[in-house]
């Protein structure tokens, strides 16, 4: 008689075996599902949170090691606010529109055109532009021109690294950035709310400042679409609108580029847009800011958003009220 050492259950691949903790928690899981169904009629967010917890999808933590801004760690704005409150008119003008409407945006594959006054122009795949070995996490203050502010752990590379590889020529005095134009994926671009595509610019010395970052992630994760996936600028000493999102073009130019908001309302928004408590917006004071989710605009705004030491020298002798 042949003895078959193979047991029937040996045919079950290990991947199909219910993990022990899930098995042990099956009643709890059912209970949560029933509870969620009951709650669903009144409080969708509570249900979403319960489901995320069940699925082990916790909101991410600030990365354990950051190369800048360690002192801001405890002030980091919660993930749900960083990814739920966005000014990204390509997806709608309400702060919650981007999180709602950015779902069908395709951030991959992605390529960036580098052009103009530089020695290495061309179309670069995102993977070739952002070298993994250069990626770091930094916690920065983020100050919107509308007076709200956040503290955000960004992930990315210093912009100067990418610029030095592009090798700008002596004629290059400014860097011009352009957002992707895809009205079929970005519903806001179907309305003439802004002259599309969105354009921003930096003076070359600003762009090569150590603080300027090309960002690919937040909270140690890839950028969500509503935050400007897959590649955005972060210049933390300037108002948020300078930090252009979903970049497809970087041009080295001789003349100061006309950025979108300056084109829209030149008396309200300028080229430099440096955070400055002394220079008010025509419709509101910039002296104080509202660190979200606080309801109070009670924090004193800092010159250059608190980065005067690193960036102040670039504006020495400049009339900041004139060059707002």
């Amino acid at each position: 008689m042949l003895i078959n050492p193979k047991k029937p259950w040996d045919d079950i691949p290990s991947s199909e075996i219910t993990p022990e903790d899930v098995y042990l928690n099956r009643r709890e899981f059912l209970g949560a599902a029933v509870g969620a169904a009951g709650l669903a009629t009144i409080r969708p967010e509570a249900v979403a949170a319960a489901i995320r917890r069940r699925a082990g999808l916790q909101d991410p933590e600030v990365p354990a090691i950051v190369s800048m801004g360690e002192e801001l760690r405890d002030d980091a704005t919660e993930w749900r606010h960083v990814t739920g409150h966005n000014n990204f008119y390509e997806f709608g003008t309400d702060k919650r529109d981007p999180a709602r409407n950015a779902g069908s945006f395709q951030p991959a594959p992605w390529s960036v055109r580098i052009e103009g006054e530089c020695e290495n122009p061309g179309d670069y795949a995102l993977e070739d532009l952002i070298r993994p070995g250069e990626v770091e996490d930094r916690i920065y203050r983020f100050r919107c021109v509308e007076t709200w502010s956040m503290v955000v752990p960004w992930r990315g590379v210093p912009l100067r690294n990418v610029i030095s590889r592009a090798a700008p020529t002596n004629n290059a005095r400014y860097v011009r950035f352009e957002t992707v134009f895809r009205p079929e994926e970005m519903p806001g671009q179907n309305a003439p709310i802004l002259p599309w595509p969105y354009v921003e610019g930096l003076r070359l010395d600003e762009a090569t400042n150590l603080l300027a970052m090309l960002v690919t992630g937040v909270y140690g994760r890839d950028l969500p679409n509503q935050n400007g996936a897959p590649l955005r600028l972060i210049v933390p000493w300037k108002y948020g609108f300078k930090s252009i999102k979903s970049i497809v073009k970087i041009s080295f130019v001789e003349e100061m580029p006309l950025n979108t908001w300056q084109e829209m309302q030149p008396n309200e928004y300028g080229f430099f847009a440096n955070v400055n408590p002394e220079v008010d917006h025509p419709r509101w004071s910039q002296a104080r800011e509202k660190p979200l989710p606080s309801p109070f605009r009670s924090r004193d705004t800092e010159l250059f958003n608190g980065y005067a030491e690193q960036v102040g020298h670039m504006y020495a002798g400049m009339d900041l009220a004139r060059w707002y």
Binding site: I42, T77, R80, G84, K95, R96, K290, P293, P295
Partner: peptide
């Protein structure tokens, strides 16, 4: 009190 709350910027 019952819905999703007022988000990141309740004052606005």
């Amino acid at each position: 009190f019952l819905g999703e709350g007022l988000g990141a910027d309740p004052t606005a």
